[in-house]
Computed example of a mutant assay.
Amino acid sequence: MKQRKRVHRTEQLALENEFSANMRDVIDSLLSAHRTQRPVVFTALIETRGSTPQKAGATMLIYEDGRQVGTLGGGCVEAEVKRRALECLSTSQRQLETFQLDHDYGWDDGLICGGRMITLIDPIGGNSRIEYYESLLKQIDSGEGFTQAIRIEDDDGTIPAGARYLFDHNNTLIAQTDDHDFPNSNSGFIPELKSLPRPKMSQGWAYLPTLPKFELFIFGAGHVGKKVSEYASQTGFEVTVVDDREIYCNPQNLPDAKHCLVGEFDEVIDSMEFGPRSFCIIVTRGHNHDEEALFHLIRKQTCYLGMIGSKRKIRLIFDDLIAQGIEAHELERVHAPIGLEIGSQTVPEIAISIVAELISFRSQLSTSVRPHK
């Protein structure tokens, strides 16, 4: 397995995708509670500085009995957020709270590091703009990415602190929690999602981007494919597994995969559609199946294409494909052997090395996401 260039944004991007998955559970639970008229409080980290247990974008829903969905990092700060959230249930008043991770909130967590967290606390009741959360859930499920703009300061007395505005992947305003119009002068601060932005603060506003989802198609439902499915789904990939053996390729065996496709590799691949956010990896049970899958994938438009195997096996497969009419330059984009060089030996270690490479490659995508043709 070959070493690839180290990318410093890997951890941040993984966190952003993790927050997206966490947020969906939180918003889905919030809407369910609203339908059944159960009092709940929505909380979110909207700005962090320094060392904090979670970063901006983390969300948590709190029920009146103290149960929760999601997390803001645990420990004393989370406990204090819950306490204040439950107080807000009686007033139905939205609040912004600032926590300094010093002696007040750091002793039990080992977090005496000077970090700061600004938290939104929003009780969900009859006067809540539930349409905002419904639109938010639709944006999460679309996988195209979106941005939330949140008012941090209300010094000018026009837009109250905690007001939120939801923009789709084209930076079109589609929902808001307050009646006040979003300032035209701030439209230039909405991040362009194609540049993979991080959360930012500007002129009393917090901008929280949720990046587009990336699809991962795993060809092979064996031990390695199963573990890659598990780890990749936990780091923000939307996973589809393909295999010709239904005994392995099924939702019970692959609970982390969104889709399980069963059939001959050539027939399934020819019926599939790929795009500029599609990752494909080949980890089948043998040389012939790997070669067959690569033959049918090599000319597909994908963002990333990788194959497992020894250098000798890969050389033999490449030679066979060239003999079948595949141009040598077409094979240059294949990441093989797939995986970062970490000395992996066991199936979990191999899967970790593969997913690490996928995250690294995803993090390197910059001003635009262009498919290989």
Rank of each mutant, 00 (worst) to 15 (best):
E97S: 14
Y133F: 09
R94C: 02
R83M: 03
T119P: 01
D102P: 05
D122L: 11
R83D: 12
A85K: 04
G114H: 07
I118T: 15
Y132G: 03
E97A: 15
L111T: 08
L86F: 06
Q95C: 14
T71C: 02
V77Q: 05
T91E: 14
R116F: 01
D104G: 11
E97Q: 15
M117N: 01
G125N: 14
T98I: 05
G114M: 08
S90N: 13
R129K: 09
Y133D: 00
E97L: 12
G73C: 08
E78I: 09
A79G: 15
T91W: 09
D122Y: 00
S128K: 04
L86G: 03
G125P: 06
L72H: 10
R84S: 06
D109E: 12
W107Y: 11
L96E: 00
L111I: 05
Y133H: 07
G70W: 10
C88Q: 15
D122F: 00
I130C: 08
G114K: 12
A85L: 06
D104S: 10
I112W: 06
L96T: 01
T119R: 04
D109A: 13
L101A: 09
R94S: 00
E87R: 12
V81C: 05
G70Q: 08
Y133L: 02
V77Y: 04
G73K: 01
G70H: 08
T119Q: 03
G115A: 10
G125V: 04
D102H: 13
D109Y: 13
G74V: 08
L111G: 03
F99Y: 15
M117W: 01
L101I: 06
I121M: 02
E80T: 11
Y132Q: 03
Q93L: 12
V81F: 01
E78D: 08
L96I: 14
F99T: 05
C76S: 15
E87C: 10
G74M: 13
E87W: 11
V77S: 02
K82V: 11
R116I: 11
E131Y: 05
S90V: 09
C88I: 06
E97I: 09
R94H: 01
C113M: 08
L101K: 04
D109F: 13
G74D: 06
L111K: 06
G70A: 14
G115V: 09
M117S: 01
E134H: 07
I130M: 02
A85D: 03
G75R: 04
E97P: 00
L86T: 05
E131I: 00
V77G: 09
A79N: 15
S128T: 15
L111D: 03
G74N: 04
E78C: 09
N127D: 10
G110K: 05
Q93F: 08
L86D: 07
D109M: 12
I130A: 03
I112E: 10
Y132T: 03
C76D: 14
L89M: 15
I130K: 02
M117P: 00
L72G: 12
I130E: 00
C76W: 09
I118F: 02
E80F: 09
R94V: 04
G74K: 08
L111A: 14
I124K: 00
R84M: 04
